[in-house]
């Protein structure tokens, strides 16, 4: 399978990365090189093989349903580019 420049632009939109015409063109070539490389996986017979879902066979650990943390609003917003009274500020989303 290979991608064209239209697909690259659509994927960039999905990934929320602005790309120029020139970027998209370069990426098309690079992505096709990588997709060409991974193509060989199709020759592997995987009938009856389960996909890996857990690297180490173990039951998922569950913690007790109790509050362990909190009251850290100032810590949470400390690194944000724009805040006001412990809220993250973003451009207007709803008119």
């Amino acid at each position: 399978m290979s991608v064209d420049i239209k697909t690259v632009k659509r994927v960039a939109r999905l990934a929320r990365i602005a790309v120029s015409e020139e970027d998209a063109e370069r990426m098309t070539g690079e992505l096709n090189a990588i997709l060409g490389f991974v193509e060989q996986l199709n020759e592997v017979d995987v009938s009856g093989v389960e996909p890996m879902t857990s690297v180490t066979p173990m039951e998922m650990k569950k913690r007790q349903d109790v509050v362990t943390d909190g009251n850290k609003a100032a810590d949470i917003v400390a690194n944000a580019p724009a805040t006001e009274e412990n809220f993250f500020l973003v451009p207007k989303v709803v008119e």
């Binding site: 399978m1 991608v3 697909t7 690259v8 994927v11 960039a12 999905l14 990934a15 990365i17 990426m27 992505l31 990588i34 997709l35 991974v38 996986l41 199709n42 592997v44 995987v46 093989v49 389960e50 996909p51 890996m52 879902t53």
Partner: peptide
């Protein structure tokens, strides 16, 4: 990020991601 977004996008998940996770088990 682009490769990852592509292989997880609708219609390609089985062909790429699922296949890779099966090969991983092998």
């Amino acid at each position: 990020i682009m490769i990852g977004t592509y292989v997880l996008s609708a219609g390609y998940y089985d062909a790429y991601y699922l296949q890779a996770q099966k090969v991983r088990n092998l």
